[in-house]
Design a binder for these strands. Structure first.
Lengths: 225, 225
DNA sequence: ATGCCTTTGTGAACGCGTGCACAAAGATGG
DNA sequence: CCATCTTTGTGCACGCGTTCACAAAGGCAT
């Protein structure tokens, strides 16, 4: 029986072995003292807990470059996701095959959701269309949304939204890059005063940031991780 | 002079106002007691600290659906990023315009990096090509990499890598979705035993997970946020 | 069967980040 | 010029998650 110790796993993942064991114990997965964890059993338990053993039908709305990229992405199937339908508002796209699936028109959105019992939707539309698409998805019964459009979506209680902002990742890299570059010179503070604008003038609109539910734990309020 | 109080900002962002003030104080941004923060000055200070005031040339390697989507993404320019070049290994792509830029062949990678003083690279290639592209980018002087390919890249000390795995986001949604569904029924534990495989059989290879530098703070070792 | 060795599971301590609460500071009005 | 009011900046305490450290447990050799 192939096994792994928490120590091996911890080293491979770069985390503390005690934390790993404690996490596993929360999952109810039991290892064998003096031996470790049965690999196959462990994989199964984690997969099940994460929902990987279930089949999750998803729809992708907005079949531009990004939508097509997502439709072609191979990683979904292996993680238990099945692309139930591709939906686009452009009538010219309708019927056109993308990644082996015919693109369906937005008119069919509601029936597609209902017929396939879809609870997860992916929004890859332009920013302007995102909220409207979101509302329709939710109304049709979708309770989890992955949003690639650069907008904050407001959703009713009980619906989960995760926003993927491709430029935020780049910003975080640029932030660290700047740090690297700044280390051998002055502590940034100095150069600031030199180029800072006078503290006056017409401003940016403050406040008014859509109905988010609360802190999402990904990005601290001000500083990137 | 338009101003905002920490209280307003905190309410809009859904965070605690004290935390916000403390964060600002770390940045050295000074507000005015009894008034608040000068909006324009604050925006400028945060932008500067985050590196938004600098011009960051980036290259995108791998111009498939995803690469094209990134090239067309409008959010980059406004955050201080400039797409210096699009690079693809397919000779048939060379010269073809994508998002207004001619695609360059991989042969030119090194000279492009050097000539444009690029320090940030985006990898949108298939998994198989990613590590090789990564090595070439690093050798040419790139010190920050945004990786969309489903592989763990190993890089030398001093190079930052951020991995964007599109299916992980979906997995997190599915995880919460499962929780929602499971609440009104049994506590998962029960159903497990019924369908669990016997604790034996040929296993999955353990250990061996490339040279990551350390915990990255994004996703806990076991449980999604 | 007994003792030793390995690794788990977890109680307890430590450290860090968050939030509270308040003094200091500045604006504003009389 | 003084009193009052608002809002910042921050010391302090609380709580949570991580890590340490060790007893319990199981395997394995003799």
């Amino acid at each position: 029986m192939p096994t792994v110790s928490s120590e091996e796993l911890a080293a491979a993942a770069g985390v503390n072995s005690a934390k790993l064991r404690k996490d596993f114990s929360y999952l109810g997965s039991y290892g064998t003292r003096g031996v470790g964890y049965d690999v196959e059993y462990l994989v199964y338990q984690i997969s099940r807990e994460l929902g990987l053993t279930q089949d999750w039908p998803v729809v992708i709305v907005g079949i531009g470059n990004l939508g097509a990229a997502l439709a072609n992405y191979g990683g979904f199937a292996s993680r238990g996701f099945r692309v139930a339908a591709l939906i686009d508002a452009d009538p010219a796209m309708a019927g056109k095959p993308v990644a082996g699936l015919p693109v369906r028109h937005t008119d069919e959105l509601e029936s597609i959701i209902t017929d396939n019992d879809v609870s997860i939707g992916v929004i890859a539309t332009p920013a302007g269309a995102a909220q409207q698409v979101c509302d329709r998805l939710v109304a049709a019964g979708v309770t989890s949304i992955l949003n690639f459009a650069p907008t904050v979506l407001s959703v009713p209680e009980g619906v989960d939204v995760r926003k993927v902002d491709l430029s935020i990742e780049l910003q975080i890299l640029a932030f660290h890059e700047q740090r690297k570059a700044g280390e051998e010179t002055s502590p940034a503070q100095e150069t600031a005063a030199a180029t800072a604008p006078p503290r006056s003038g017409a401003g940016v609109r403050a406040g008014a940031a859509g109905g988010r539910k609360g802190p999402d734990g990904d990005v601290p309020a001000v500083m990137p991780a």
